[in-house]
Design a protein around this nucleic acid. Sequence first.
DNA 1: TAACTGTACTACCCGTCATAGTACAGTTAT
DNA 2: ATAACTGTACTATGACGGGTAGTACAGTTA
Lengths: 124, 124
Amino acid sequence: MFQIDNMSHIPVYEQLVGQVEMYVLKGILNPGDRLPSVRSLAGSLAVNPNTIQKAMAELDRKGIICSVPGKGCFISDRAGEILKEEHRGELKEFKEQLRRFRMAGIGRDEIENCVDEVYSEGKK
Amino acid sequence: MFQIDNMSHIPVYEQLVGQVEMYVLKGILNPGDRLPSVRSLAGSLAVNPNTIQKAMAELDRKGIICSVPGKGCFISDRAGEILKEEHRGELKEFKEQLRRFRMAGIGRDEIENCVDEVYSEGKK
DNA sequence: TAACTGTACTACCCGTCATAGTACAGTTAT
DNA sequence: ATAACTGTACTATGACGGGTAGTACAGTTA
């Protein structure tokens, strides 16, 4: 379910956070679902338990999961809601990227093509 | 002309690289233009000369500027061309971002609004 | 000659990422 | 109750990158 890219410049714990969030957005992980334990994840991913715990702590801090000592880590009820709100906030940064594209001479039609392509994926 | 945000998590030398590239794309810096010297920039920006030099080395490596010992650093003839090509390569990453937005429930209309807004800025 | 230019090099500080090992408290099944 | 799990906390260590500090060298220009 999870996989780590050791060659990536992105920290391992951030990769984990990102993958959990992605699975939540995709509906693969749903509220109440239990994540693998810190130690089992550390074993299967060949990563130090502390690194896994760091990812769990971050997810718990954001409200994506709910860590319960002795029981495990569970997807929070508001996980999807929180993530969607977070992405909405990234729209500002998105505009900055668009402005850079425009200055780089990338035409509006090229952008429109990308949007059309992505938002047509998986449609009937 | 240049300014550094010490509170940013982005390395100073990367901020400098980004600003030079931005000015090139905006047409404020043009081929042949001479950048302030390493030491004067270090002084005015209150940054170590080594940090400035690191930015210059990176810009020289990418072909954006041409460093000439004893004379100075000058905007390369192909600077604009190189930057536009670089941004074109980022279209793939742009699509990934779009997919994340779509999964986060951001509608196509919201994206279209952003595109329209950005590509309408500064138009007659 | 003097004052500039870019460049190279070493040394050091600091923060982050990751590992390693230990320990403690809560939960669950036997 | 015991054993085996669960999350959590803590210290110590090593590696790496960003940044500073200082020095030095070679090319350019007035």
